[in-house]
């Protein structure tokens, strides 16, 4: 119970104070982003948690590699003849659209790692007692998950595009379709991350939230597709467009198609024409990103009372 000794004398006892410079919150946020991104691919986690993300990343590459192989074989193949051969892949954005089951499984499996684990173990409190603000913490992790989803879409797209322009294909047409698809993939990655992040904070049981996400996205996708089919048959485009808003994949497809004058991934979808529909799809996609993000922020703050 004596007076506290000065901080200088403690070397004798083996405790070394930190004398270096502490990093700024921005630098810390970058570290957190890196760690979160690695965790999305199972790096720095248990061995078995690497299986799913890498398996899906590999599967995502298969169609691109097959296409690239065919293009190299035939040397010349326009987007239209590719479309004739591979129906759905009439546009680059058809890639994430037709691999949506794989993407859904990926994001549903990884979102709980970033957003539910710390709530389940209440580790989140330790983060809150550290420099990064609560909002920054969630947004940085959201950015990391978005990056991961975007990467597994963009890498095969880029391979496909690289092979296409190195062959004698119309460069302008491919470049435009490729860039439009990249924008669409980014928006899609944002919506999927925000949505699955939000869902995973409602149940901190990883398996349950993953299943929930997969079921919701697949069912809504099925419903949207059938409504669009009926609307297409009856020639009622507006109904099809409104239905598309109910699922992130079809909503983003509508956005890309309308804004960049791209063909749609499915024959049953009709291209939205006019400023009105473009604004509609911009608003819908924005809502798909912003609303889940706000709920995710609120849930994380609330779940972590000290």
């Amino acid at each position: 119970m004596t007076a506290t000794p000065a901080r200088g004398v403690i070397h004798d006892l083996g405790y070394r104070p930190f004398t270096g410079r502490r990093r700024t919150p921005a630098q810390t946020a970058v570290s957190l982003y890196g760690t979160a991104l690695r965790h999305c691919f199972g790096l720095g986690r248990a061995g078995k948690s690497k299986v799913l993300p890498w398996l899906i990343s590999a599967l995502m590459l298969v169609p691109a590699l097959v296409l690239a192989g065919i293009i190299i074989q035939l040397k010349k193949m326009s987007l239209q003849s590719q479309a004739d051969l591979f129906g759905p892949l009439s546009t680059y954005f058809g890639y994430p659209y037709w691999t949506q089951l794989l993407l859904t499984i990926f994001v549903a499996g990884q979102a709980p790692v970033l957003f539910a684990r710390d709530l389940r173990y209440r580790t989140i409190v330790l983060y809150y007692a550290r420099p990064l603000s609560r909002t920054t913490l969630v947004l940085v992790r959201l950015a990391a998950l978005t990056t991961a989803v975007f990467a597994i879409i963009a890498v095969p797209l880029t391979i496909w595009y690289a092979v296409a322009i190195s062959s004698d294909l119309p460069r302008g047409q491919h470049t435009k379709a490729y860039l439009a698809a990249l924008v669409g993939s980014l928006v899609l990655a944002l919506t999927l991350s925000a949505l699955t992040g939000m869902v995973s904070t409602f149940t901190t049981r990883t398996g349950l939230s993953a299943t929930g996400v997969i079921i919701v996205l697949m069912i809504s996708s099925g419903v949207v597709t059938s409504i669009q089919g009926i609307a297409h048959d009856q020639g009622r485009d507006a109904v099809g467009h409104v239905a598309a808003a109910a699922n992130p994949f079809s909503a983003v497809a509508g956005l890309v198609s309308g804004l960049f004058h791209q063909p749609l991934p499915s024959d049953e979808m009709t291209r939205p024409v006019g400023v009105g529909w473009n604004l509609f799809f911009v608003a819908v996609c924005l809502a798909w990103v912003v609303v889940p993000t706000l709920i995710l922020l609120a849930r994380t703050r609330k779940a972590a009372s000290l």
């Binding site: 930190f18 270096g20 502490r22 990093r23 700024t24 919150p25 630098q27 810390t28 570290s31 957190l32 760690t35 720095g44 986690r45 248990a46 684990r117 710390d118 173990y121 209440r122 580790t123 409190v125 330790l126 983060y127 550290r130 420099p131 990064l132 000290l306």
Partner: peptide
């Protein structure tokens, strides 16, 4: 904190190190 706050699937060395980085080291 008073309550439990440790993730079960991480070892102490990795966890404490991550927390140190999060504190700005």
């Amino acid at each position: 904190p008073e309550h439990d706050c440790l993730p079960a699937d991480v070892n102490a060395a990795e966890f404490v190190m991550h927390m140190a980085v999060m504190s700005g080291l």
